[in-house]
Nucleic acid binder design. Structure first.
Lengths: 258, 258
DNA sequence: GCTCCATGAAGTGTACACAGTTTGTGCAAT
DNA sequence: ATTGCACAAACTGTGTACACTTCATGGAGC
């Protein structure tokens, strides 16, 4: 316990140096929030760890007030648990919950793409998607991956999904999907597990989904998106079952590779 | 603007008297949070209204600290918007967003009931559901509604859905569905718009959903639940289009009838 | 009369002090 | 040795003062 806290202290100190230039405007609470969130998502603090307000305030060189504000906000995002008079702890995400998150995300992104197909794409989002598809085509035409390609595709993938989400035009939906993405390990930054042929297939999915959206086929679009996300879940589960144990810690840091 | 705040002040004062006995333990922040939430859901504060911290603290007889904590928590629930250095405003839910919320809820509850069917019902939840179904049967066998029956069925309906949600055994899902329920107007307390035959049909849906769950038919259960919730949306939309305008204010308070 | 800037009022952001609760520790009794 | 209790340390909850930002008001300059 005490160990967790000191670990975090060190790692947050690193983060401070790293993101010193990117501090958010005006508000220390928001800056503190970002730093703590990164520490959690980056796996710097273990699940279930208790976050000590005074220690955090010392480490981050602010008073307890913005720290508390940040913790409350992060609890609202679902990253922390709160117990009265006992403070905040890092929320635990057991493996089944992480797998479930993909099903939830599949359902939500399915609805999102259905909305997009019903409402049509604005030229802005359409451009982004077409560019993402073209960039993916180009990246994949070589037939194999080189170093850094996966990171590149991760961005392309993000653009595609974000643009569709924007086209859905619903804030609640966006926020819920964002929460799904921010589940430790299910985060987009941790999709490093996939091989070339996985990405190839997922990229084909993207093409078909786009086709369904521009063709104004809402339910087909929804079904395709659900299957698309569900297949990611399947890949993850398959990847996990290849291992003998379920090394949670290893997976938490896996995505942080350069 | 100023008018909104004074309105709220009065209405919160009422609420204080009304819920004085039900105050939450230990924590003033939580108590304050409940009171502000009720004021918003009850329609006491208009959408878009800015919430003044000092005024709230005076009205609720606490300092700004618990007020700020409550506001931040409510923002996390999606009921408030936050802008740095400008404080909190009551989040706006335009009619399309409210209608969308039913689609989102349909998708989420669909996943929930699928999980429940996959994982099976514990005897506890099974009992609750069977009792809810039986109570509904009894209430409906008369063939028409008397005064108060709708309120009664609202509780039965809530028990049914809550038990299934519990059976799904996923916290993230529960919280997201809870958020959908807490959208002003889409709240369960506002289902006063339905006639006897609507409730009759929805109750039949419940029977079939239960059947699918105990029969371990996950996808059938999901489909039934999606259709079930979607039909509520359809009823709402139909009810709305019967009117010439879309009187948001009227609907916000409609559910509070005795 | 209109625009622009200064000024102050109002409101939010932060720090800090103190109160209340939880939790760990050590002593005493069995 | 174990259990129970009391005390103290640590931590969270709340109040309050002050700093900073925003916004409205009004007057000077054009």
């Amino acid at each position: 316990m005490e160990q967790h806290l000191s670990e975090m202290t060190e790692l947050i100190d690193q983060t401070i140096e790293g993101t010193a230039g990117g501090m958010r405007a005006g508000n220390r609470s928001l800056s503190v929030m970002d730093q703590i969130r990164e520490a959690i998502l980056g796996g710097a603090v273990g699940a279930g760890a208790r976050l000590n307000e005074v220690q955090l305030s010392k480490t981050l060189s602010v008073s307890r007030t913005p720290v508390r504000a940040a913790l409350q906000a992060l609890a609202g995002e679902g990253l922390l648990d709160y117990a009265p008079n006992r403070g905040f702890t890092v929320r635990e995400f057991p493996l089944p919950a992480i797998v479930d998150a993909y099903d939830i995300r599949a359902a939500l992104e399915g609805v999102a793409v259905r909305f997009a197909a019903e409402r049509g794409l604005a030229t802005k989002e359409r451009d982004i998607i077409e560019r993402a598809l073209a960039a993916g085509d180009k990246l994949l035409e070589r037939g194999s991956f080189e170093a850094g390609d996966l990171t590149l595709y991760r961005d392309i993938n993000g653009d595609f999904h974000d643009a569709l989400l924007a086209a859905a035009g619903n804030r609640m939906l966006s926020e819920m999907i964002r929460i799904c993405h921010h589940v430790p390990v299910s985060s987009t930054r941790n999709i490093v597990v996939f091989e070339y042929h996985d990405v190839r297939r997922r990229h084909d999915d993207h093409h078909r989904i786009f086709q369904a959206v521009v063709g104004r086929e809402p339910w087909r679009a929804e079904m395709l998106m659900r299957e698309h996300v569900a297949s990611i879940k399947t890949s993850l589960v398959g990847h996990l079952s290849e291992r003998k144990t379920y090394p949670a810690a290893e997976f938490q840091t896996a995505g942080e590779s350069p």
